[in-house]
């Protein structure tokens, strides 16, 4: 035998894995590469340039959509994280009680329903409310984003709570910490990485959303993804690649922060 026996080795698995990683990154690399194309179209590559990035930054619609995306994601992720943290504390480390399963089902419900169905439901629902109230602002988008962000924020916070040694809070109580002090000085600091992870997950999920936003938005409320969807359906210029590359950069930064925060074991 050329290779020494290893308990973990399975023939061909490593090859398949490497192919997968290659296939996952090749399109992204090509996409980013063409963002630096100096040509007018994507049909040929004519040399490096930053002109499409400059173009993107001059595009009023892109800037507006980006700001709107960040606004919605910021508010929705914050609200969802606060609600999810409270819910996680309410649903973990307890003996089962009446309604606990119902709570799980409710909180995770947005994960179980195809996005398109939620999108349609919100379209119908908000259309009514718009008629009743006459309000047309960003509130609808923020409410919708908050709702589907709740389960994403909830997951890491809950996981962190469940893994937390409950004797630590007992120890705090034993050392004269009132329930509030035990929460403030022991539970919250230990839960913090989970809360941060939950927030970032919710933030990215909100930033990435296309379908629900597409159905809920009123005229002139494009977020960056819905703006891009509209453009991709028409004609594609390297400007879209440039915007995508910047968007990718943002995502990668958030993932790396998430990774560092979540992996660091206290």
């Amino acid at each position: 035998m050329a290779r020494r026996f290893s308990v973990q080795r399975q023939t061909g698995f490593a090859t398949i894995a490497i192919i997968c990683f290659f296939a996952l990154y090749l399109p992204i690399v090509v996409l980013v590469f063409y963002a630096f194309n100096s040509a007018d179209s994507l049909s040929s590559f004519q040399g490096l340039s930053l002109r499409w990035f400059a173009r993107a930054f001059e595009n009023r619609q892109v800037i507006d959509a980006s700001i709107r995306s960040l606004q919605i994601a910021g508010v929705a992720a914050t609200a969802a994280t606060i609600a999810a943290t409270m819910a996680a504390i309410a649903t973990t480390r307890t003996e089962p009680y009446r309604g606990l399963t119902l709570k799980y089902a409710f909180i995770n419900q947005p994960l179980m329903v195809p996005e398109i169905v939620t999108a349609v439901a919100l379209l119908i629902f908000f259309a009514r409310i718009k008629i009743w109230t006459g309000y047309n602002g960003l509130g609808y988008l923020i409410a919708a984003h908050t709702a589907f962000c709740v389960p994403f924020a909830y997951l890491p916070i809950r996981a962190r709570l469940e893994n937390m040694d409950s004797t630590l809070e007992k120890a705090a109580a034993d050392l004269y910490a009132t329930p509030w002090n035990a929460f403030r000085y022991v539970t919250l600091p230990l839960l913090w990485p989970g809360i941060l992870a939950g927030f970032m997950l919710a933030f990215v999920i909100s930033l990435d959303d296309v379908v629900i936003t597409e159905f809920v938005k009123s005229a002139g409320q494009d977020t960056l993804p819905t703006y891009m969807l509209g453009q991709i359906r028409r004609t594609i210029t390297p400007e879209m690649n440039a915007i995508s590359a910047l968007f990718l950069l943002l995502s990668i930064c958030v993932v790396i922060v998430f990774f560092v925060v979540n992996r660091k074991r206290v």
Binding site: D165, T167, L168, K170, L190, V266
Partner: peptide, 9 residues
């Protein structure tokens, strides 16, 4: 405590 329950942070 049996597990000591020292605050890790």
């Amino acid at each position: 405590f049996q597990s000591y329950a020292l605050f890790p942070h």
